[in-house]
Nucleic acid binder design. Structure first.
Lengths: 169, 169
DNA sequence: GCTAACGTTGAACATAAGTTCAACGTCAAG
DNA sequence: CTTGACGTTGAACTTATGTTCAACGTTAGC
């Protein structure tokens, strides 16, 4: 299979496929005498797997160390560990998001709750003081790998994306 | 107030304060005859506000257009709009996170649910097929500005962080 | 044998939010 | 008057995930 075919079958740009090869993520590639890359049918599944893992929040580096060269032989322990850690990461992020949301909702309410006898400037000062004075919760997330919702997801939907790169730019 | 003092009072690096000025985010700065920057006391609150907004998920670009030159005079409508949109963004992200988490938990369960009579390779194939075959939900988030939990948050906690840059590198 | 479509490479660019560095100027204390 | 702390600048670097480009080679169809 040539790179163009693989691109069509996976919905990924050829530049992305070459990039994955360059960073050592996609190793199942050979060369024809003319220099063209050639892929086994398996490559489709590998790329699908990479895409899925990415959408689940794994960085390419993480995927690289988890992906076995042979899809039938995984490092079971490392995989389960990684999955479990990723779930924990997501939960941490969820907690932080919930906090941010609460914070924003409080703020909205606070702004609207201006006492009738208070002018805007004074209200602004009141609200500002509240914001800054808010509890200094240290919700710092310590895990190193939260990359859910990267631009990838906003620009291009891999599963349902166009087979051919949209003609525009 | 010189930049070092401001850095101490806000807990931000001087490089960050200069950077904010460069991108037009922090405009309340003057120069002494010797070239030194000098800040009004208000600058502390402005920087606190920027930091808080960032932690709530606002990009510096968004903050820039919302921040009035005079803290007493906000564009009330634009502000409320932005806050409301940000809450919606967070909710979209929450939905996506919940999906990712479900996906991962299913996967974990699926891996562990290997039929007793199935060898690992076959199980791997079964699980892989399940993964890739999963519904192609297009949870693509359309909003342009989800930057909660950037490295900032993992490297440095602004509210409770060290006043002086932690000496390490 | 021409042309369009496809393939190759390396390098540069993009984004966001900064940090780091070198080379230099200023200031306060002893 | 020297020393150390602080200030200035512009440019380059960082991270992660790619895209874009120019210049060139290959192949398939007509």
């Amino acid at each position: 299979m040539k790179i163009g075919d693989l691109a069509r079958k996976t919905g990924l740009a050829t530049s992305k496929i070459r990039f994955y090869e360059r960073i050592g993520l996609l190793k199942t590639v050979d060369r024809r005498p003319n220099g063209y890359r050639t892929y086994p049918p398996q490559a489709v599944m590998i790329l699908g797997l990479i895409t899925t893992a990415q959408r689940a929040g794994f960085a390419l580096d993480e995927i690289r160390v988890l992906l076995p060269s042979d899809l039938a032989h995984w490092d079971h322990t490392a995989l389960m560990d990684a999955l479990t850690r990723k779930v924990a990461d997501i939960e941490a992020l969820q907690a932080r998001l919930a906090q941010s949301k609460i914070h924003l909702l409080h703020l909205i309410e606070d702004i609207q709750a201006r006492p009738a006898d208070m002018d805007c400037a004074t209200n602004a000062h009141r609200v500002l003081t509240n914001i800054i004075t808010e509890p200094p919760e240290d919700l710092t997330v310590t895990s190193d790998d939260i990359r859910l919702l990267d631009k990838t997801d906003r620009r291009q939907s891999v599963n349902s994306g166009p087979r051919k790169k949209a003609a525009l730019p």
